[in-house]
Design a protein around this nucleic acid. Structure first.
Lengths: 193, 193
DNA sequence: TGCCAAAACTTGACAGCGTAAAGATTGATG
DNA sequence: CATCAATCTTTACGCTGTCAAGTTTTGGCA
């Protein structure tokens, strides 16, 4: 078959099939050999386009990130000013990943934390650090006689939790940026209240 | 050797060696066979204690989480009141993972985001969504003629970034908690400003 | 005490994986 | 038309997780 020996667009096809497999079965199911055979190509063919599996995965991540960027740029255009643009971007960022949880797991990890965010509920397998934070927050409200609606409480709890978890994610999973002084950032309490 | 055929404490030994390997070479280097041979035991011996590799990994995660919990509980005890306890826990949470980045990667993912948090710097391979957020934030400051110290700007930027990223992490990587209404939470702007 | 079932561990085997080397096929270029 | 580089196939290797069957040890019961 003269028209299939040279695939013509194998690089893009591999990325596409890779994304499809991740969406259908998660990252663990992604193997070079499966992607190759999904493209009707031998298991070693990808090596003409990618140095190794990591390079294919990197290309897939770039492709997914481009989709996310398109959404965020859209939010910026739709915003009346920069301030609302920031909030809009944040919302798009969160909702993009909420609509594609497998993408987030693929880009950033594979753990499934369980945490009952609802104030009046709890689960046996809740992530212990979160449970501790939640209990302490409720105690804080009680001690100081603070009355808030359920929603307000949950929002506030979630904000604290997201700040800490997000900061840890950024601090630990960022490449080395030597000039940034984390200790200086953390010495005050601004970041966490 | 009657005293080594039955290891006596293989389960704990496997967990310990697993943690050691992760600390030394990262999660990718963790294989059942390596952990087993590090315990001077055949490659199938772990199956007497763990159903499969995932179950060993789960046990290792539990062990690491216990270490983290000990630190957080320490912070609670050291705090004068619940309010400072919250801030203290957040700090411990972040600093625990900063001191053990491999633990965070192991627990939550394997991605290395690159993002120049310093206002006056940038890198070619910065995570695009972060770059967009940063640029928009700087534009917002300029448009409104807001003057702040470098540090204040960086703190504020980091807070916004951490909120969004942390929320996405929580929203996407949490187990299903049916009664929690994410849409209700996200419909207002409280969470992101 | 002696025995026996269950627990702990070994050995051997299998399919799937990533990857390297060598050869076949193709399209483009001179 | 000849040639060469790019692309793809074939073959092979070691490593992996897992299973099945056999061996050793332990603990408890007759």
């Amino acid at each position: 078959m003269s028209d299939t020996y040279h695939h013509g667009n194998l690089r893009e096809a591999l990325i596409e099939e890779g994304i499809r497999i991740i969406n259908e079965s998660g990252e663990d199911a992604l193997s070079l050999r499966k992607v190759a055979s999904a493209c009707n190509v031998s298991h070693a063919a990808p090596y003409a386009h990618f140095k190794d599996k990591d390079e294919l995965i990197e290309a897939i991540k770039e492709s997914v990130t481009e989709q996310l960027m398109a959404e965020m740029e859209d939010a910026v255009k739709a915003a009346a000013n920069s301030e609302t643009a920031i909030v809009g971007m944040g919302k798009r960022y969160v909702s993009f990943f909420r609509g594609n949880p497998d993408y987030f797991k693929f880009l950033f990890g594979r753990q499934n934390i369980t945490a009952h965010l609802r104030i009046d509920e709890k689960g046996d397998d809740d992530y212990p650090p979160f449970v501790l934070l939640k209990e302490t927050y409720l105690k804080y409200l009680k001690e100081n006689g603070i009355k808030k609606s359920r929603k307000k409480k949950e929002v506030e709890l979630l904000k604290i939790w997201a700040s800490a978890h997000g900061l840890a994610a950024i601090a630990c999973m960022s490449g080395v940026i030597p000039s940034f002084d984390w200790d200086e950032m953390l010495e005050g309490d601004d970041l966490l209240r």
